[in-house]
Structure formats: structure tokens, C-alpha cells
């Protein structure tokens, strides 16, 4: 089923408010990072609330840095890093939700990755991306390159499997025979 409808914003239509700004911003980004942007999805044509930029994983840090500090964009607030399991190749989308505290608007970046591929860590841009990326690793098994301490965060360190993958079973339990490993932070 594919019902294409523009997603209305709750209170005040973002499409009329930011529509032109989104168009100019996305064309600007497209011109600047010509080969690094895979695809741009704009709201009325694609069922989303804010524009989505599909970025190649090699270029994600550059684009994030640009969006964070470039005047006119200033998406300085990292609202969220998460991922989705699309069940087709490339399997995962790593999703970055950004918010501009200056212009009060939002944008979404996505990186398509195959199972086992490394994504550059956004901790180089925002220190706070640390735990969000650890959670993505824990839940989806996507590894981040250059992350200072990529360990599981919600699940036990001995856990096998990544729960939010679509092929992960809903029921079942794991028995640990090994004792809990000593935390590397304690020895540091």
C-alpha cells in the first residue's frame, strides 16, 4: 500500500513556512556536495515531514560539519541518531535528525549502509553522539569508525545478536555462563 499524502505539521504548516527555504537549502547542498549526495526527498512529493538527504557514507562528516556551522543553515542541535532496518540491500539507514536553534527548522540525513560496513562516527562533530551511536551499534550492529568506545549500552555485554534487526526473534532468552567481564573503563 502506498498512500502518498503530505504530512501536515501539528500547528502551523511547516510546508508553507519552510517550503522555499528547504528548496534553496537543498539545492545549495546539492551544488556543494555534488557527488556525495545520493538523493534528496522533499516533503510534498515524498511522505515525510522535513527534507531527507541521502548522503554517501564517505561524505557524512563533511555534510554534518557543513550543516552545523554554515551561516544560513546552522543545524547545531543533534536531535537524534538512530537507524532503520529496511530488509533490502543496502540493509540499514542510519538516520540523523538535526534541528537549527537559529532558524527553528529541522532536517534529516540518512546514510545507506550494508551489513558489516563501517560508518564514520559523528562524535568528531558532536561529542554527544557517543551514546546514540553505541545504542545504534547495540540494537542494529552497525559499527562506527573512529568511535572512542563502541560497546553495548542497553543490553548486557555478553549478549549475542542485535535486537532491533527485523530478523531477530521476539521470544527467547540467553543464559550466560561466563561472569560479567570487567569494564575496560575501570582499568583505565
Amino acid at each position: 500500500m502506498d498512500v502518498r499524502q503530505p504530512i501536515s505539521a501539528n500547528g502551523g504548516d511547516w510546508l508553507t513556512k519552510f517550503g522555499d527555504q528547504w528548496k534553496t537549502q537543498t539545492t545549495q547542498i546539492k551544488e556543494k556536495f555534488r557527488d556525495k549526495i545520493e538523493e534528496i526527498c522533499l516533503p510534498p512529493d515524498y511522505p515525510t515531514d522535513v527534507p531527507i538527504l541521502f548522503v554517501k557514507k564517505e561524505g557524512i562528516l563533511e555534510v554534518l560539519n557543513f550543516l552545523k556551522s554554515e551561516p544560513g543553515f546552522e543545524y547545531g542541535f543533534l536531535a537524534d541518531i538512530t537507524a532503520t532496518d529496511e530488509e533490502e540491500e543496502p540493509r540499514f539507514h542510519v538516520v540523523y535528525n538535526l534541528f537549527s536553534q537559529v532558524h527553528k527548522c529541522r532536517i534529516r540525513l540518512k546514510v545507506r549502509v550494508r551489513d558489516g560496513e563501517l560508518v564514520p562516527s559523528a562524535t568528531a562533530v558532536w561529542k554527544g553522539a557517543d551514546w546514540a551511536e553505541r545504542e545504534v551499534y547495540d540494537m542494529f550492529g552497525i559499527k562506527f569508525e573512529g568511535h572512542p568506545d563502541l560497546r553495548r549500552i542497553l543490553m548486557d555485554n555478553r549478549w549475542v545478536g542485535h535486537p532491533l534487526r527485523k530478523d531477530y526473534p521476539l521470544r527467547g532468552y540467553q543464559v550466560f555462563t561466563e561472569p560479567m567481564p570487567v569494564d575496560p573503563d575501570l582499568l583505565a
Partner: peptide, 17 residues
Amino acid sequence: PAGEAYTQFEAANGELG
């Protein structure tokens, strides 16, 4: 309907989305 949205609101402690 198919689509995606990140809805956020000023919760008591900050941005709940």
C-alpha cells in the same frame, strides 16, 4: 499511510520525540 515523521514536543525535561 506510508511515511515518516519525527514529531517533537517540549516535554518537562527537554525534547521528547
